[in-house]
Design a protein around this nucleic acid. Structure first.
Lengths: 354, 354
DNA sequence: CTGAAAGCGCTTACAG
DNA sequence: CTGAAAGCGCTTACAG
């Protein structure tokens, strides 16, 4: 004879059925709002459900019905405000559609990404929204995920194409964003414009560089090799690399940055070197993270609206669940220039007359 | 005769068992690492698991075993960097312990909180980490959640105590934080120090005001009523309320702010009024959000380390799962003063000689 | 060491 | 309109 702590045992359909003298089937029909149940019976069952504090066990129901009401969201890390906003948008749209969000973080490690995906897959998500860790391989991911679970890839292209047909892809318009940023600096009179930060092997960096080059080309300028400075996309690394911009004369008077973190690092590095961003050097960022609007000087940047991108990603995976057999699609999300006084000094202020 | 798309059907234990001529029981024992299985049989089964691309269905297993491997995390919103960091810490620690995080956002609405909790409970979380929406009622939450699922409350006290015995509570040391902030301004020579922002009916605001008053009292100062200015804890509202600080002469020369958002709003509002934070008015914040270090001027504030708090919250709920019957506990997390040049001008700079 | 059988909490044809 | 029965994918005593 075992003693069960009060309230510890789960209340099931059977308990409720017993409590109001109907079958489990009838209670189930009431729960699912079936019109088959007599309204008086329904009322009795509903009273009993409430009386016993019944909680629906969606997992059991999903098992029986062979459906899933969760979507896995795998991102780099919530400490990055870009992904935090993105995740907020995903969760908002998924919750509105009746899905629950399963969270996973890779910390930009493909090894952790493997482990996180394997663990999440065991929870049977209906689909996966994946912002891949840098260096993720499409073929490997396909082996891990299989063909049963649709994946929406966000932000970063996978390294290898996939024999089974590509996954859906939500891309930022990196080319156009960098084009707009560069065009803005050109319009303010700059001619020697650097592209600062990021790694050449990241697809988003290559695309942003392409947009940058295209804007320069449209103005009849060819990017000089020393204007292209690589560094890890963090504030600290960017601050360390600032010197590379000024090794040769004439040095650039402005920089399009790979992202806002790099731009903030550049601003800090300029200060260290006795220069003032927005005063004698122009800086434009990419992403429009929350810090961009309160930095000193405020940062002109490319707004990506990560929260809206999150909602969009959720809509795309939900649509895929509705049409599992439609061909894979790439969606390119628009970006826009967010001008703020005054990280983007005009050339006249930089004391440059070359 | 229905045609199944290749790879759409789930591979189950039965498929694997059939594929290598053993019973489902044996496959299950292999999966769970039982020493009962002959090593040769084990090898055969493992090869077949891999060959068929088997994915464990943890939901089915958990149903049978009556356990859960998920924890629900309910917060205000991931757009708030404080909660994003907190969530990152929670997820990190839960993942390390083999749990998956179910995410839910309230947007500070108790109505949405009800709906989100009801939905998450249907997914049978082992426990819930809840940062309650403002105005959450403990009695109502108890009715909703029941006695089966342990809850760790974070950051904000619930409105009513609970007859069933309180839930675990992870609190920030708000009193001490505000005390440290106020003491710092006193040490810099200020005597007329305001407490700016927050709502009196929020428990964290009351506690921070208590710490502020205690520090003033220790210096023989009593807070004047007009030094206590309420406003919603957002940048925008704070900027709008700045005028209230200067309605009477002599006005305060410094302010302890309810949080960093309010502090940043105050800094902006001061600028609008032709004053300069850190130059002729001293500002101290609370939370140490990422913007605090890059604002102009950088913000001296109280560091709460939300990521560490997230890890701590996860540890506390995991411990509760291990000891369901231990008495409920309140844990107070330490906070510390983060001094940054130079939002915290000394009084001599404020031109105040009163 | 391996297999047959019962059961977790639910749903859904099917019969009445 | 209601109930008995089978089954979703797994686990676990129990028997052999």
């Amino acid at each position: 004879m075992s003693i069960v702590s009060p309230g510890r045992r789960r209340i099931t359909l059977s308990d409720v059925a017993r409590g109001c003298d109907v079958s489990r089937a009838t209670v189930s029909l009431v729960l699912r709002g079936s019109p088959l149940v007599h309204s008086e019976t329904r009322a009795r069952v509903e009273a009993e459900l409430k009386r016993q504090g019944y909680v629906y066990h969606r997992g059991a129901a999903n098992l029986r019905r062979n459906v899933s009401t969760s979507v896995a969201l795998v991102i780099n890390d919530l400490s990055n405000p870009f992904f935090a906003e993105f995740a907020g948008g995903v969760d908002e749209a998924l919750a509105a559609a009746g899905y629950v969000t399963l969270l996973g973080s890779t910390g930009e490690s493909t090894e952790r990404q493997r482990a996180v995906l394997a663990s999440l897959l065991e929870h049977d998500p209906a689909g996966i929204i994946l912002s891949p860790a840098e260096g993720s391989d499409g073929t490997q991911l396909r082996t891990l995920v299989g063909a049963r679970t649709p994946v929406l890839v966000f932000n970063r292209q996978l390294d290898h194409d996939d024999r089974h047909g590509a996954w859906d892809f939500l891309a930022l318009d990196n080319v156009r964003g960098a084009f707009l940023a560069t065009e803005h600096l050109l319009a303010r009179g700059h001619r020697r414009i650097a592209f600062f930060g990021g790694h050449r092997d990241s697809s988003s960096c290559r695309q942003r560089r392409d947009g940058y080059r295209a804007a320069l080309a449209a103005a009849g300028i060819e990017a000089e090799p020393q204007w292209l400075v690589e560094c890890a996309p963090t504030r600290l690394e960017a601050a360390r690399q600032v010197g590379a911009l000024f090794v040769r004369d004439p040095a650039p008077t402005a920089a399009v940055c790979y992202n806002d973190a790099v731009a903030l690092g550049l601003i800090a590095g300029l200060t260290t070197r006795g220069r003032r961003a927005g005063d004698d050097f122009a800086v434009v960022g990419f992403d429009d993270i929350p810090e961009a609007s309160v930095s000193a000087p405020p940062l002109t940047t490319i707004a990506v609206d990560p929260r809206a991108r999150g909602r969009q990603a959720a809509e795309l995976i939900l649509q895929r669940l509705r049409e599992p057999d439609a061909p894979a699609r790439t969606t390119v999300a628009a970006v826009q220039l967010q001008v703020r006084a005054s990280s983007d000094a005009p050339r006249s202020h930089t004391g440059d007359n070359a």
